[in-house]
Amino acid sequence: MLTLIVNLAGLLLIAAIVWWFWLTGRTGDAAAAGPVPATSVEILVKDGVYDPDHITLPAGSAATLQFRREDPSPCAEYVLFPDLEVSAQLAVHEVTEVQLPAAGPGKYPFTCQMQMYRGLLEIK
């Protein structure tokens, strides 16, 4: 009986990992607040996440994003928008402005150098 319970729990755990991190996480449906207009907020870099981590911008115009880094660990030091060829070094306990060029509609992920911090910029 115990063996059955443990095995069942293990398999359910795997299913939960796949569902939580890859299925719901990727579509963004589970994001409680939904995407946030990027220019209206300060993006907090703390405890392994960008907050908000799903932001939007209008297509065709350059924009400035504001990142406030509160995590002193080196992981959080850089933010990269690989598809826009933009990167910036974030100062600890300060707001760093990151200039983005005008870009076409699409989804542009942004991450730290090690891809542990992950966010999504949606240009509409």
Binding site: W20, F21, T24, R26, A30, D47, V49, D51, M116
Partner: peptide, 19 residues
């Protein structure tokens, strides 16, 4: 503690990292 808070916040964002 920072590993646990980092892991929890990442979890809430459907993310998983070294923490």
């Amino acid at each position: 503690g920072h590993f646990f808070t980092g892991a929890w916040r990442a979890f809430l964002h459907h993310n998983a990292n070294m923490d």
